[in-house]
């Protein structure tokens, strides 16, 4: 029982991690409905970018974010324009292409680095706060805060700004949006770019915790797909809540059941929730069809 609050804290921090990874995916997969298997690779690129800044210029990863995030936003926009845009009427082929991108990006990094593990050890990454016997790692707390800020920012952006409304409009009905004078392709390009930029942000913030490998992106993104679906496609609040559900489930299953079984438990919980609410926790009924009807 003495560990109970430690496990809760752990689950919340882990939830922050999953929520942060899911924010970008939610924009790409949830809002503009592109099944992007290579999302994890953008996260991985973010990690390597932060590492590169750290090892060559001594740049703290948190400062490196100001370079890495715009760079990955730009890369995402280029990828959208060159690969996803020509396939906008072929969503299944977009899936296929994104798998090609996954192989391409992952193995370019493998070829360059030889797959050797890379780590950094910033002074900040060793700080832990202890409050009433419960431990919080400072790097994980930052991630949690970033997840809240990013989700909140994205939510406000989608709800309040003209451009955010344009994104939602395009996602819901491309034809109508176009008739309203929205530049559809440009809107999608920006959404995709912001999504990959957010993946990069997650990567940067995770770098102080992990040893980098070219395959590491997949470790986060499989769960993130579950989080986005669990929360309800496109719901920013849903992704946040979904992240915490997955994080807490993982912490409790790992500590009280068996660390080897925690992934199975997460996905069983995931399926169970979907069976009760087939369109996700905060999704609208029929949400799975929105945007797809209009794409041909």
């Amino acid at each position: 029982m003495d560990q109970f609050f430690n496990v809760v804290a752990l689950g919340m921090l882990l939830g922050g991690t999953y929520a942060l990874v899911s924010v970008g995916l939610n924009l790409i997969f949830g809002v503009i409905r592109i099944v992007n298997f290579s999302q994890g690779e953008f996260l991985m690129l973010g990690m390597y970018g932060a590492y590169l800044g750290y090892s060559t210029m001594g740049l703290d990863p948190y400062a490196g974010a100001f370079i890495v995030v715009p760079a990955l936003t730009l890369l995402g926009m280029v990828v959208y324009w060159l690969v996803m845009r020509p396939l906008q009427n072929e969503p299944m082929m977009q899936v296929f292409a994104s798998f090609g991108l996954l192989l391409l990006i992952q193995n370019v990094v493998l070829a360059i680095t030889g797959g050797v593990g890379m780590s950094m050890n910033t002074p900040f990454s060793q700080v832990t706060l202890t409050i009433a016997g419960v431990q919080f790692s400072a790097t994980r707390l930052i991630i949690l805060l970033a997840a809240l800020v990013a989700a909140g920012g994205l939510g406000l952006f989608l709800a309040k700004t003209n451009f955010g409304q344009a994104i939602r409009a395009v996602a819901q009905d491309r034809m109508a949006a176009q008739l309203m004078g929205i530049n559809v392709e440009r809107t999608f390009m920006w959404s995709f770019g912001i999504g990959t930029g957010l993946a990069g942000l997650a990567g940067v913030l995770l770098t102080p915790i992990y040893t980098l490998s070219p395959q590491i992106g997949g470790n986060f993104v499989m769960a993130a797909f579950a989080v986005v679906v669990l929360g309800g496609l496109g719901s920013v609040l849903g992704a946040l809540v979904g992240g915490f559900i997955v994080g807490l489930t993982e912490a409790f299953a790992g500590y009280y059941i068996d660390p080897e079984l925690k992934h199975a438990v997460i996905f069983i919980v995931f399926i169970a929730v979907l069976l009760i609410k087939p369109s996700g926790l905060f999704g609208q009924a029929g949400a799975e069809e929105v945007g797809l009807r209009e794409q041909s």
Binding site: N219, A223, E250, G254, K262
Partner: peptide, 8 residues
């Protein structure tokens, strides 16, 4: 491939 091993 676990994201966290604090439980272990």
């Amino acid at each position: 491939s676990a994201v966290d091993l604090t439980d272990s």
